[in-house]
Write a protein that binds this DNA or RNA. Structure first.
Lengths: 214, 214
DNA sequence: CGTAACTTACTGCATCCTGCAGTAAAGTCA
DNA sequence: TGACTTTACTGCAGGATGCAGTAAGTTACG
């Protein structure tokens, strides 16, 4: 029943450190702002503030709009110091879950079209994210950030989202060009092109931007 | 008790489509090869083949080495056709879970050192992955791939891992340089530098490689 | 003015997934 | 021969997800 604090708890605590939030808005805000760093289900996002209250990291206050109530959560001093402590701990390595990449890793069990479709899906998703992030940040130029004094971190973080989406699009393009040369998906083994790629790897040369070497 | 087939089930089915595997080796192989596309716990990886058997996608055969038994799983024809069908379905959008990015998104709740430490962790993890992938693929040049006729997909996939790791390292370097200029983490808001970044965004120019424009 | 559709504001539940501990045989090194 | 590691798993508590459901307020339209 107590259930200990997880990374998701601290993610919510981060939002509460900005200002008090009603549960519903907190959940909405979290889905939007955590989507690219710590994506969690709406269900969990609703439960986390309760857990924070249980641990003394936040307080809950019921407000009424007519017959309907909503709970406003506020961070406590204890919550703030716990957050400061957490900020100094070592983060876990990142995790990437990509069904489309899974299809490509086992592309030889499907058709060329299947592989191309997986790459197209990857591109579509990345392009959408890219445009979305761009649109949101364009608004910041005109002072549309909900917390103007946080714009510096927001924008820095956004550069990652853009670079990441861009990488996916460029890599997918590269992969499409490679697969377009395949007669089938299966049993090709060490083709000439595979050798070439392996060679550029040993030289630490990027395959999607050959001018780059570390 | 039945429990339906998930993406993880199909991931294991992909491995079984290559050859029959004993549970233990299957788990080991899955942790290694799925780490960058579909990372799952050892515990789940052990359970999945059982589920596949339950659904008629695989068969289980017990082998004995002295007193100790091990279960060898083999894909069925039904499993192969289910896999073919799955390969043609639309993949879910990718999910990135990065605690270090979460720290940066809320860098203003911690110290400059905390932010730098998060970036360092990101770099360390990415550098490790990069070297690991490079080492493994270097072996493929000398024919060390366990399934030589799959080397073309393996290597294509590896290019993503390298590009991704490389992006993280380059972005982290960029972010470190930005944060190094901050007097504090908090309340900076729209600095001159933030404006500059926003401007290059609207021009769709990469901040870590300014020569690139789509 | 009524009602249908949508938004706000959540909760319960089944099922999925993870982490950790535990078991036990077989192999390896001194 | 004893200690340690590797192979080969299983059980269980608890964290996370998806989906359905509830119910009040708000908006659009005829």
């Amino acid at each position: 029943m107590p259930s200990s604090l997880t990374t998701s708890s601290y993610a919510i605590l981060c939002l509460l450190a900005i200002r008090p939030w009603p549960g519903y808005e907190l959940t909405q805000q979290a889905t939007r702002s955590l989507r690219f760093a710590w994506p969690k289900s709406e269900r969990l996002l609703y439960s986390e503030p309760k857990k924070l209250v249980h641990h003394g990291m936040a307080t809950a206050r019921k407000e009424f709009v007519g017959e309907r109530s909503r709970t406003v959560y506020t961070i406590t001093d204890e919550g703030r110091s716990a957050l400061t402590e957490w900020m100094a701990t070592t983060p876990r390595p990142p995790i990437l879950e990509a069904e489309a990449l899974l299809r490509l890793l086992f592309a030889d069990h499907g058709s060329i079209d299947d592989a191309m479709a997986a790459l197209d899906a990857l591109t579509t998703d990345a392009a959408e994210t890219y445009e979305q992030v761009l649109r949101i940040n364009a608004g910041y130029v005109d002072g549309e950030h909900p917390f103007p004094d946080r714009v510096h971190v927001s924008v820095l973080f956004a550069t990652f989202q853009l670079e990441f989406s861009d990488l996916i699009m460029r890599w997918a393009e590269f992969a499409r060009a490679e697969i377009a040369e395949w007669p089938t998906t299966e049993g090709l083994g060490m083709t000439e092109r595979t050798s070439e790629i392996l060679e550029s790897m040993t030289q630490r040369r990027s395959v999607i931007d050959p001018s780059r070497t570390p």
